[in-house]
Nucleic acid binder design. Structure first.
Lengths: 222, 222
DNA sequence: GCGAGTTTCTATACATGTAAGAAAACTAGC
DNA sequence: GCTAGTTTTCTTACATGTATAGAAACTCGC
């Protein structure tokens, strides 16, 4: 009758907090107050433990952020209806990744990881690879093509989000504005010509155009 | 005879250090010991002042890094012989920027700026814009094209350098390796197929291929 | 029940960027 | 010379990530 209740097979002091709990609480903080307010100390007190205890469940803050991105991708990356033609599949998969990432701009510091290798993103990578191969690329070239698409996508997100971030927490004239003011129209006529419209032009979302151009170029190269 | 020696026209306490001195010393530290060893405290002691005194010459460490990048670009960005055909010019200008950036991998954290808008880089931007326009793009589309090239270039540098950085200061199995180990060949056949070669493939430098593809796509879109 | 081993948690400490304000070193007007 | 104003520098303090060392809480073999 009095069997040992669920015989504990784990050695050592039992854990009071779990990695899942850490990540979930971190997510709550980020959702509520933004990623800037996520500190290990606050996370610890909200969980009811000490900062260093967290380090038994995440290796460091960076890994925690990666885990957050993973967690986010798991929920936000819903697999869309993909078109039948392979080119369209590649576009749709890449656009879906881009859309999900653009929606949570706090991951910039994490995004510089090698690949977007969240488990839940793998399906999208698979679609891109498969689409590229169906378009006639060799498997090896398809991997390179995926990388190129990833460079472009990650670069767009990173550059765009940090640009807007700097613009918000800084009201002095932009570095850009100062630079443009110095442009000599005789020496740099195209820049001088574009100077007035630069801000407006770079504010436009041209990700899809660029993605299509890149993809067309990749496919045209056989 | 005893004229006031160079009548000081500046009000207030005379500066003991200059912004140029700060940047030059920072450069020396970075060149010698890497960007990780550049701290405001060390910089201050090497100059012979206190950390907070630096903040009257650079707004914060980020701005110091941007200034370092500027300083570096000034010296490293030598204008190459550009080919006559506009497509070649664009490629050469972008490749030159990429090459210079790839040579100093510590700028990753700075590279996320809006554009590479160092004064010394403007000439390259001009060449890219001019080349794109000469290929038939409208000025507005040329700016978008330049942005696309910049996204791709910055993304490539950032992703590549942080990837190698993480690999060096971390000998545990990569996140990537763990992810690939879980790939189900039935569900994700392309990924499973590429898994073994992934590391080798992504180690290859395919920047120029990607750049050409992107450029061709941009030009093909009229 | 007891010691050994193992895991998790806690306390303390340090390096770092930088905010806030006082102090210093000058010029200009009297 | 003295005061006011201005600019630069210094002092002190704080928040943050995290290293290190050891205490605490468990299982297992005896």
């Amino acid at each position: 009758m009095s069997q040992s209740p669920a015989p504990r097979r784990t050695l050592g002091r039992p854990a009071r907090i779990s990695r899942e709990q850490v990540i979930a609480t971190a997510r709550r903080i980020v959702d509520a107050d933004g990623v800037d307010r996520l500190t290990m100390r606050r996370l610890a007190t909200e969980i009811g433990t000490t900062p260093m205890a967290l380090y038994h469940h995440v290796r460091n803050k960076d890994e925690l952020l990666v885990a957050l991105l993973d967690d986010y991708a798991e929920r936000a990356l819903r697999r869309p209806e993909l078109p039948g033609d392979p080119r369209g599949r590649v576009l749709a998969a890449a656009a879906a990744i881009h859309e999900a990432l653009a929606a949570c701009p706090w991951i910039t510091e994490v995004l510089t990881a090698d690949d977007l290798m969240s488990t839940s993103a793998l399906w999208f990578v698979e679609q891109i690879l498969d689409g590229l191969i169906a378009c006639g690329l060799t498997p090896d070239r398809a991997v390179h093509g995926y990388r190129a698409i990833w460079y472009f996508t990650a670069g767009e997100i990173i550059v765009r989000t940090t640009a807007t971030r700097r613009r918000t927490d800084d009201d002095r004239p932009t570095y850009r504005e100062r630079v443009f003011a110095d442009v000599d129209p005789d020496e740099l006529p195209r820049l001088a010509q574009a100077a007035g419209r630069w801000a407006a032009l770079t504010a436009e979302d041209t990700y899809l155009d660029g993605l299509q151009a890149l993809l067309d170029g990749l496919l045209a190269a056989h």
